[in-house]
């Protein structure tokens, strides 16, 4: 099976001397193509740091990282920008839509940086918005959309460049339970269509709907198991 993420002995140190913080400490983790993975753990346990490294927004202090077979730990800023653009889609807790742009214009943004011609951009953006159920909201500004709709626009933006990997850091943190379920349904569908999904979450009900759960604590992976398909049986706190 093809490996999408391979973290090998990754450490991330912030600051130096007395103020040194080991946000990640010798983390090794492999995620294969087609997986749907939740990352859980207490606040400050290094989940976001790991996501940033996986998402090529940050470089590890130590260790190597292979993304889709490519060694990316030592790449320069421009190459990382290109990898983020082509291979990775991000979904954030606060959506991060640009308020002055309409839904379709927001979704077109990543394709502008990919150099895709205007016409194709429009077609693909409309397609992506249709996929998340917003075909009738193409020209609405973010402030004309509900939180759930905004997050769906953000998902459309994340998938429009056809990434191999979708990264979501607490994507449902700002949503109510109903819209949370809408977003999770979309994630499951995207995963079913072949995109690898990695999602940080605090909510057990959210993690339960993935295929695999990785637990972080104090910058280390302490538990890594398949998610129970049966909703009632999951042990929420690992041993």
């Amino acid at each position: 099976m093809q490996t999408i993420i391979r973290l090998e002995h990754i450490s991330k140190v912030y600051g130096s001397g007395n103020t040194e913080v080991w946000a990640l400490h010798d983390v090794s983790l492999t995620v294969n193509a087609g997986e749907y993975c939740a990352i859980m753990g207490p606040s400050g346990s290094g989940k976001s740091t790991a996501m940033n490294i996986i998402g090529c927004l940050d470089r590890p202090t130590e260790g190597s990282y292979y993304l889709d077979g490519m060694d990316v730990a030592r790449l320069g800023d421009n190459e990382l920008a290109q990898i983020r653009n082509r291979k990775i889609g991000f979904v954030f807790q606060q959506f991060h839509l640009l308020p002055q742009l309409s839904a379709i214009e927001n979704v077109m943004l990543p394709m502008i940086y990919a150099g895709i011609p205007h016409k194709e951009r429009q077609e693909r953006a409309a397609e992506a918005l249709t996929r998340v159920g917003l075909a009738n909201r193409l020209n609405n500004r973010p402030n004309q959309l509900s939180g759930g709709q905004q997050q769906r626009v953000a998902i459309a933006r994340a998938i429009v460049n056809r990434p191999v990997l979708l990264l979501a850091d607490e994507p449902t943190g700002a949503l109510d339970s109903h819209t949370t379920q809408e977003v999770l349904d979309i994630f499951r569908e995207l995963n079913a269509s072949g995109i690898t999904v990695v999602m940080v979450t605090h909510e057990p009900e959210v993690a339960r709907q993935t295929k695999r759960i990785v637990w972080f604590r104090d910058g280390q992976v302490i538990h890594d198991h398949l998610a129970p398909t049966n909703l009632g049986q999951m042990t929420l706190v690992p041993s």
Binding site: G55, D77, N78, A81, Q82, N85, F90, Y113
Partner: peptide, 11 residues
């Protein structure tokens, strides 16, 4: 956000 979705420093 722009950088996260692929804008380079030059962009």
């Amino acid at each position: 956000l722009r950088k996260a979705i692929g804008a380079s420093q030059q962009d």
